[in-house]
Design a protein around this nucleic acid. Structure first.
Lengths: 159, 159
DNA sequence: CCACAATACTTGAATTTGTCAACTATAGTT
DNA sequence: AACTATAGTTGACAAATTCAAGTATTGTGG
């Protein structure tokens, strides 16, 4: 842990002392805080595209050949189905994705990126990765790798 | 990527196949998802106390001898000052914390847990830790340790 | 000491997000 | 055909987020 003494020259607005309190040891708290920081960075990176993280996530998945249904998106992104509706509406209005009928199930739509959508997501992904890499570069490379692998375990293991 | 040989016996509710898409590699996404899972667990554990994670965080910090000001809480928890106001209102109405004038700065309040608040937070902390430990026990112990350490680095380093 | 800018907290309003129930259309089952 | 379950949509409502403005106090430069 205490390998980076990267503070103290700054005037220190003073809330850092709260790290010593019990919540500073709490994994749920650390996760929440790391996520909040990550989120705000990513959202800044996506602001140029008029996206927030969710638009980006939906578009990125739609730009693969996975051809996800809205239900799958809802489940995977842990969002209410009605939230997926508005996300897809948003992207569809901008011509980035289309709803295509699922030939196997006429109730379902499949969300697919347009050519424009694929171009856009490529640029957005680049922006996101620049912002992420910059942040994660404060970690030794093997820690970034470990973090990714550990989080995959946690995030994939429901219950 | 493309294993759309949708034929398999595993009819499975299906969204797991989306792990293969690009977002599944994205640290920001993994962080968000892990946090969402952690959050919902913790909130379940706290429901008995009528808390959500933020009430608990404020109370837990107030129950130390750190005597945080509201501004410090705002900064540390990354919440708008007005959100701290309502959290402290909430806890104060329940007799769990009090606002005490900061002798060094009459503009500021210091948030301190009452005796009742200290008792409550102790029970709440136990509930949270049970729920966390249960979840994190899917990790090998050294990974849990590493995760904690890595997250502390990430969460503490606000470039 | 005075004028002025900055800070700590509070209030309220605007916006976004989260949650949920009801509805239509289709699927699957018996 | 009757029944139940599912995919998507809509709309209502609650909760959370963000912002702008106001009060009291602090600190600073003249």
């Amino acid at each position: 842990m205490a390998d980076t003494t990267a503070e103290s020259t700054t005037i220190e607005h003073g809330s850092d002392r709260l790290w010593g309190t019990t919540v500073g040891d709490d994994l749920a708290f650390l996760l929440a805080r790391a996520n909040a920081l990550s989120l705000s960075r990513v959202n800044v990176a996506l602001a140029d595209f008029g996206f927030k993280i969710r638009h980006y996530s939906v578009l990125a998945i739609a730009a693969t050949d996975a051809r996800p249904s809205q239900r799958e998106l809802s489940e995977f992104l842990q969002l209410d189905p009605s939230q997926i509706v508005s996300l897809v509406d948003f992207l569809e209005k901008r011509g980035l994705v289309t709803r295509e009928p699922d030939p196997r199930d006429r109730r379902a739509n499949v969300v697919v990126a347009t050519e424009e959508g694929r171009k856009t997501v490529q640029q957005a992904r680049a922006a996101v990765h620049v912002s992420e890499d910059h942040w994660f570069s404060i970690l030794p490379p093997e820690d970034a790798q470990r973090l990714s692998s550990i989080l995959r375990t946690l995030a994939g293991a429901d219950v």
